[in-house]
């Protein structure tokens, strides 16, 4: 990472670290969590044991069963989860792992291991959930369940979410987006402000059908050629590209 980062995350907020691969998202997340050396200060107003962290590569015990893995993670955080309790079965049901509860982790598919990593993080995250690039690996159903749960807990101001992604779709769902590129912070703001401040140019396209022509907003001529301008809401990727070209927000 080059340069400085200053950010505050409050309960109920969702902060996204967004950038292409190699932008420094994981490095920043791990430095914030104290899992790699850093300069500067991170002030936590919550107990470290209340942080649930889902790493980019699931960190699971290959010979543990699914239910053992969740219970052991909870035990590390001193959370009393019992095999016979309802909470663990709710969690496994929510992540579609209930039928696999007696299976060893090494026999799960890659997608199931991702779900288990997230399940463990959710089980222990009582105040802050940190997710490093796993959301884009989830199938649609699990992704919807994840956001449903996070939305509900954020709305009750129980939980804050800090997540890293290279998916523009996931970044749109954050309250604040920290844009990174090649280890440098380009901007930190709400998605709406970023769209406005980044001054993304409208996209010029040639129409291919009548329906597309109907959506055209304007016609622009340059050097004798006609460009048809389609106005659409810029995505987070459009904003990121604009910021990369410009070297950050002015």
């Amino acid at each position: 990472m080059r340069g400085e980062v200053s950010l505050t995350l409050r309960r109920g907020e969702r902060l996204c670290l967004y950038g292409y691969s190699g932008a420094g998202k994981t490095v920043l997340l791990r430095a914030l969590l104290g899992l790699r050396p850093r300069r500067g200060e991170v002030v936590w107003h919550i107990l470290p044991a209340s942080v649930g962290y889902a790493a980019q590569h699931p960190r699971l015990f290959p010979r543990a069963t699914v239910i053992q893995q969740v219970i052991w993670c909870a035990a590390l955080h001193a959370i009393p989860l019992s095999v016979h309790g309802s909470r663990i079965h709710e969690l496994l049901e929510q992540w579609g792992l209930q039928t696999h509860r007696r299976r060893q982790v090494r026999h799960l598919s890659a997608g199931e291991q991702v779900r288990l990593e997230l399940c463990c993080a959710m089980a222990v995250a009582s105040q802050l959930l940190v997710v490093d690039g796993l959301l884009e690996q989830l199938d649609e159903r699990s992704r919807a369940r994840f956001w449903e749960e996070v939305d509900a807990r954020c709305a009750r101001r129980e939980l804050a979410l800090l997540y890293a992604t290279h998916s523009a779709r996931e970044a749109e769902l954050a309250d604040q987006v920290l844009m990174l590129h090649e280890g440098r912070v380009l901007a930190l703001d709400t998605p709406e402000h970023l769209r406005t401040d980044a001054e993304v140019e409208p996209i010029r396209l040639e129409p291919t059908s009548g329906s597309e022509q109907a959506r055209l907003q304007a016609v622009w001529q340059q050097d004798g050629e006609t460009h048809l301008i389609i106005q659409r809401t810029p995505t987070m990727e459009d904003v990121l590209q604009a910021l990369i070209r410009r070297g950050g927000l002015r």
Binding site: G34, P48, A49, R59, H77
Partner: peptide
């Protein structure tokens, strides 16, 4: 065997 699993989880949970 489990990579950095136990070490990292213990460190994060201050356990």
């Amino acid at each position: 065997e489990s990579g950095r699993s136990l070490r990292e989880r213990a460190r994060l949970a201050q356990a």
